[in-house]
């Protein structure tokens, strides 16, 4: 308020009027720039949505159309029933959901558990353990993929979904976030109080610490879920069975150079179906997620 009134008072002098005009111009340019970038971010998804509403015939004709048509449900229906391609929506959704849910739940619980173990107790290897986890955080996942793939083949573990789920128990980055959260928000007196009140150590973790860590768990759950949901590299190596493929593998298989023979409406719908769960989650939790991005970045 104070700023504004000052602004009006000083409008009289030509100098400040100049400054004001300059500010307005700059502001307008900024908004134009922002709107342009927003357009860029959304335009392709908008096109995707439009194309899911158009029939194969309309799509095969080509051309840029910006108005939705009426074949959305037809495409959806066709995708689930008659679409003969690499994309099996029911199986893909199911497998993706199993892997993403399973691995993000394990990541959250065990990262919190490990972080709590290092934070709450004093033991000889405490510091060494933390430094080790920090160090392995930077190792690219590809380094293990060759050996992992080989072992999976050797022991007949290909096409087992649990093989994608179990390793997420050891998630260094999530661990790091959790231990920072513990350090900044939970008081050790709380743990001691719980001990005095009669809990054993696991009870203290499950009943006192986990509920307090809910915000951190939620953020990490979302990131881990999205990461797993979108992951192509490891699943594509391990899952070759038709009934075990996840959505990204199916999407990868869809890509082709000749589209003429395919039901394009269904393919657009398949893409739409793969991204829509995450978009819906994002619409509801965006504020939360963006906070998580910043919090996760304040490393070191």
């Amino acid at each position: 308020m104070a700023d504004k009134s000052k602004l009006y008072e000083s409008v009289d002098s030509s100098e400040s009027r100049k400054a004001l005009i300059k500010l307005i111009v700059v502001k307008t340019l900024c908004y134009l720039f922002l709107i342009f970038l927003t357009f860029m971010s959304f335009f392709f998804f908008y096109l995707l949505f439009i194309n899911t509403t158009r029939s194969n015939n309309q799509l095969q004709d080509g051309g840029l159309v910006l108005i939705p048509s009426d074949s959305f449900f037809e495409n959806l229906h066709n995708l689930f029933t008659s679409f003969r391609g690499e994309f099996n929506a029911v199986i893909g959704l199911k497998n993706s959901l199993i892997v993403a849910l399973g691995s993000s739940l394990l990541t959250c619980y065990f990262s919190a558990l490990t972080a709590y173990g290092i934070w709450a107790y004093d033991f000889k290897l405490k510091k060494a353990a933390e430094i080790f986890i920090l160090a392995i955080m930077m190792i690219p996942s590809q380094l293990s993929s060759v050996g992992f793939y080989q072992i999976a083949i050797k022991y007949g573990f290909r096409n087992k979904l649990w093989l994608l789920i179990i390793p997420s128990i050891a998630a260094p980055a999530t661990f790091f976030y959790m231990i920072q959260y513990l350090r900044s928000t939970v008081s050790k007196e709380l743990i001691e109080a719980s001990r005095m009140d009669g809990s054993n150590e696991f009870m203290t973790f499950n009943r006192i610490v986990l509920p307090i860590m809910k915000p951190a768990l939620a953020v990490q759950f979302i990131f881990s879920f999205v990461g797993s949901w979108n992951n192509l590299y490891m699943p594509s190596l391990l899952l070759s069975n038709k009934d075990k493929k996840t959505l990204p593998i199916m999407i990868n298989a869809l890509s082709s150079t000749s589209w003429g023979s395919k039901d394009l409406g269904c393919i657009y719908m398949a893409i739409f179906l793969s991204i829509i769960p995450v978009v819906i989650v994002y619409i509801f939790l965006s504020r939360f997620i963006i906070k998580g991005v910043t919090a996760g970045s304040v490393k070191g």
């Binding site: 970038l37 971010s41 192509l232 999407i251 893409i271």
Partner: peptide, 16 residues
Amino acid sequence: AFYMPNLIMASAFSAL
């Protein structure tokens, strides 16, 4: 708005 594409499945975005 600017952050949203980061969460979209990269393979789906590419297929699009």
